[in-house]
Design a protein around this nucleic acid. Structure first.
Lengths: 117, 117
DNA sequence: TCATTAAATTGCCACATAGCAATATGGAAA
DNA sequence: TTTCCATATTGCTATGTGGCAATTTAATGA
C-alpha cells in the first residue's frame, strides 16, 4: 500500500506557497530573527539592520498581513512581535538542514575536526 | 534572562531565504506534493499537473539545485524523488497552521459543527 | 544513419517586488 | 494650533522569474 498525501486544492497550495514566499526574503528573515528574542519597535529594527525605514515598514506590513507578527501602537511608536510560533520551527528546520549539509561537506572534503576548533 | 537566538551571518540568512523562496511557488509545491507519494518521471508530472513540459522541467531544476529532489536517468526518461525529508515537515507545519486558522475563523463566524459535516 | 520520444535549454514577454526618495499620516508635546 | 517624531504610503526603477513557444540535447529503436 502506498501512503497518500492528503488531498489539497490548488487554492490551498497557493496559500501555503504564499506563506513560504513571505519567508523567502533575507530582510524579512532578519526581522523575524530579531523578533524571536523580543518585541521591537520599527526604529529599533531600522537601526539594527541599518536599513531604510520605508523598506522595513513595508516588510513588516507583509509579515503582518501574513499573520506572522502582531502590531501594537504605543503612543508615537509601533511595536511588533512574533505571533505565530510556527515560524520559529520552520526556521529551525531549515537551519538544521543547512548545518548538517555543511558538516557533511566538510567531511567530504576531508577536513579534520581539529581544523574546526 | 532573555533567550537569544543563535547568531547568523547575512550569508546564512540569505541561504535560508533561498530555501523558503524555492518553496514559495504553487507549481513547485504541487510537484513536491506528488513526489511525497512516490518518485515520478517528468512526463508523469506534466500529465498530472496539465502543465507545459518546459515549465515543469525548469521547476524541477530549481528543486534539484536546492537539494530537495534527486534526479535519476533511466534510459530515455528521468525520475525525480524527494531526497530531503525536511520538506515534508515544513509543509506539514504550514498546513497545520492554516487548518487551525480556518477552524478558528469558522468558530469566530459562529458556524456550527453540524454545518461542516 | 535517421527517426522518435523524453527532457533540458533558450529567447521572449508580462508581472511581481525589493530598494530608494519623497511625501503623507498619526500621535505627542510645546 | 504648530511643531516634531515615528511610521506608513506612494511613485519610481531595476531585477528576478513564471509561463509560453521554439530549439537543442540525450537515449532508444528502425
Amino acid at each position: 500500500m502506498s501512503k497518500k498525501s492528503p488531498p489539497m486544492s490548488p487554492q490551498q497550495i497557493k496559500t501555503v506557497a504564499r506563506m513560504f514566499k513571505v519567508l523567502g526574503d533575507p530582510t524579512r528573515l532578519a526581522i523575524l530573527k530579531m523578533l524571536f528574542d523580543q518585541p521591537l519597535t520599527v526604529t529599533e529594527m531600522v537601526d539594527a539592520l541599518e536599513a531604510k525605514q520605508a523598506n522595513i515598514s513595508k516588510h513588516l506590513g507583509m509579515l503582518h498581513d501574513a499573520g506572522l507578527v502582531s502590531r501594537e501602537r504605543n503612543g508615537n511608536q509601533v511595536t511588533y512581535a512574533i505571533c505565530e510560533p510556527m515560524v520559529f520551527d520552520l526556521c529551525q528546520l531549515v537551519c538544521c538542514k543547512l548545518q548538517k549539509d555543511a558538516v557533511q561537506q566538510a567531511k567530504d572534503m576531508g577536513i579534520k575536526a581539529s581544523a574546526l576548533r
